[in-house]
Amino acid sequence: MKLATLKALTAARAQGREIAVATRLADGEERLIDLTEPPCDDLEGLAVRMAARDDSAPVELMGETWFINVFNPPVALVVVGAVHIAQPLSRMAAALGWAVTVIDPRTAFASEARFPGVTLTHDWPDEAIAKVAPTTRTAVVTLTHDPKLDDPALQAALKSRAFFIGSLGSKKTHAARLARLEAAGFNEETLSRIRGPVGLNINARSPAEIAVSIVGQIVETLRAGSK
């Protein structure tokens, strides 16, 4: 790999830009592919399609084998509610390389002391999520149990392309939540995007265990297509 290629890759990753590098396996010849630009040839077209599946693979082109390595930006996790569970959840997400944002207008909850090194915002959840602008690499999880905070967050998330939307709360709480959102104009199909109660059923009890179940369910959804 040329130094210029390495520097371009690390710069793109630092900026959260999608990028791929194609390497001809016979001799190491390489091409940098900007995945945010429309593809100009077959190699670039293949790279764009592979990036959509978060996949890297060798391809045969004109009798040559090229390896396309896709560097997608990290998964973004947006947590609504700087509650106890949010603390282990944001630490675990960081360990997975995810970019975490914790939203809570209550400054006593969303404090640097409680969330060292985590991006915090005290905006109201719908505004905060609009600012984050969720993509197909974004997961949104609400943890407050408070309709004043959770509902606007879920409404904003449902209008986005977030690949995962989850909401904490008992089955009863979740049923009431769905009824409110339906009254607000969301149909059943749209509401089926919300995983509630969020998390895999692993009999979790402590905040850290619940965080494991949530992280596990996000990974399960992220990798659903890659068997």
């Binding site: 390497t23 396996l25 996949d55 890297s56 693979a57 060798p58 390896f67 390595n69 896709v70």
Partner: peptide, 15 residues
């Protein structure tokens, strides 16, 4: 070093 292809139960994916 980059994993470029795997078959069967390989522990790390291509890339």
């Amino acid at each position: 070093a980059t994993v470029v292809k795997t078959w069967g139960s390989a522990p790390r994916p291509a890339g």
